[in-house]
Amino acid sequence: MTRILLSDKLDNCVARWRKAGLTVIGPVKKETSSSYATVEKAADFDFGIVLPDRSIKGLFFPQTEPMMGYTIKKQDIATNDFAPPTEKRIIFGARSCDASGLAIDDPLFGWDYKDDFWFQRRNETVIVTIACTKADDFCMCTSLKLAPDSTKGSDVLLRPLQNNKGWLVEELTDRGREAFKEIADLLLDGSEQAAPLAVVPEKFNLDACVAWLKNPENFDSTFWKEISMRCIGCGSCTFLCPTCHCFDFQDEGDTYSGIRRKNWDSCSFSLFTMHTSGHNPRSTQSARWRQRIMHKFNYFPGKFSVNSCSGCGRCTRQCPVDMGITETLQAISTLKP
């Protein structure tokens, strides 16, 4: 016996959660682009989206965020800190790869300095993941030893029913159980079958890739230049990536008032490592692409014991020149370690 949430009860659920003070967020397609956005009713969700164009990352680590500000008036100088938001949210219909991405980044944001903006949002957000029954040619979670129904980073996992009328409910954390208490009477007991999970073929041998990357001799391999020759150096892959987390501080304003902001930054940009002197230790695009791969599969796991990739495939899916992690790791799989 399992608990079941029927789709026709979803409108009630959304209303209940909203009444309880939660902002309800889900996969939404607006105009020509999809993302996780605020919904007001069940009809606003689009569960047909294989994966929203923009990852879940921006809801926890926005592309631009004010940190502090100042105003100066003659003798008066005032500074103000922007506190982390206290909004309570529920994301209904996250994908496993996106939820996993958040869990992958948790140790990073809590390492030498605990990022309150990240953790406040993490603590105040319930993540309800829907297991994937559809995948596209770019999905690669299985190559990262994850799966269409991975529970990593999720508070509740829903499995679509075979009859397409709702979901099997698996509560995973106290945060998830708490949110589902609000709708406990809307759930049913049942023995319906879950729909088969999406088939995501394994595209490369991760262990072989990691072994090759760990060999210091391969740092200067000509492979890097060859594989990245067509990279145009935009930040699309890094900004859409659910785990890429680099940022930059920017001061905007003048002598009298201003704001310090935390903005997304990308290792694909030449400016990323440019020194004041003009020297750039990563002066070529191939050095930048190598950094991105090395960071995800060598340096990050070296420090946090987890690869910085959840296999969503956005890097390739939206790359203007059809590059991405899949092609690079597929190529590395065929090289001698």
């Binding site: 105009e31 923009r54 592309q63 145009i232 935009c234 930040g235 699309s236 900004f239 940009f269 203007p320």
Partner: peptide, 16 residues
């Protein structure tokens, strides 16, 4: 404004 609100400043337009 609605269209540009989605812009993430990845500069893919510029680089392409």
């Amino acid at each position: 404004q609605a269209e540009f609100s989605r812009c993430i400043k990845c500069y893919a337009c510029r680089q392409a």
